[in-house]
Amino acid sequence: MDKTHDNKAWFLVIPVFVIVAFSAIIPLMTVVNYSLQDIFGPNERYFVGTEWFREVLNDSRLHGALYRQLLFSGLVLLIEVPLGVAIALAMPPRGWTASLCLVLLAIPLLIPWNVIGTIWIIFTRPDIGLLGRTINGLGIPFDHTAAPLDAWVTVMLMEVWHWTPLVALLAYAGLRAIPEAYYQAARIDGASAWAVFKYIQLPKMRGVLTIAILLRFMDSFLIYAEPFVLTGGGPGNSTTFLSIYLVKQAVGQFDLGPAAAFSIIYFLIVLLFSWVFYQVLQRVGTGDK
């Protein structure tokens, strides 16, 4: 049988592999080693087998954090992807207004993540915050430090404000890459705006939307700094997502063994979801099943 690929090209990947080995694979191996031991100090540790995995898998607080995390990431994708695509479609195709839109969209992406949390703490404070005081002024009680629903609304608003521009910028790049000939053909056929979106724009944006969905899923699933600064995981545990719970366990309580087991389970969940999304998105619009 003839070769289907020139496999020698894979050797060019070696530099990347070396960098990834030092930045990801070796640390991950260390985490696996930690997950099998009870660590008391640098030279004092005891092999415990799968004990930490058993403990972590039966931890009801972890289950709670996982459900909250899944809900959060699901909402993030449901809101940010359609909204980002809608913004990209509404943006002017060229000219100075397009440049202005791009700059405005990029602003939230340039702000450090912990600063984002601080901005939203002040913005939503019921006593001095513009949003918090306005909502309370309308007669709707709103306090993200006391009411779980308000905390969720605030975290979601912050997340959508912070990251929808990324989806919009990617979708915009995808839209701009569509040759004019497709639109001309659609006009000749008398296609409606919806048909143009469904049969030209959406399929042509598949690549960038795949990246957008994967990035937003992984980032939102690993979110830490913004909700930690904004709510600290509260009120109660209502916004304690997986990363916040993990850091509490690893840094706060210095339970390195259970935290390592938790990290591996966390990694496997992200890996599974990312792979499933990737596979599904690769097949959308191609006729494959």
Partner: peptide, 11 residues
């Protein structure tokens, strides 16, 4: 520093 164990090294 990687805190190796026999089973994880085998894995």
């Amino acid at each position: 520093w990687m805190a190796w164990t026999g089973p994880s090294a085998t894995f």
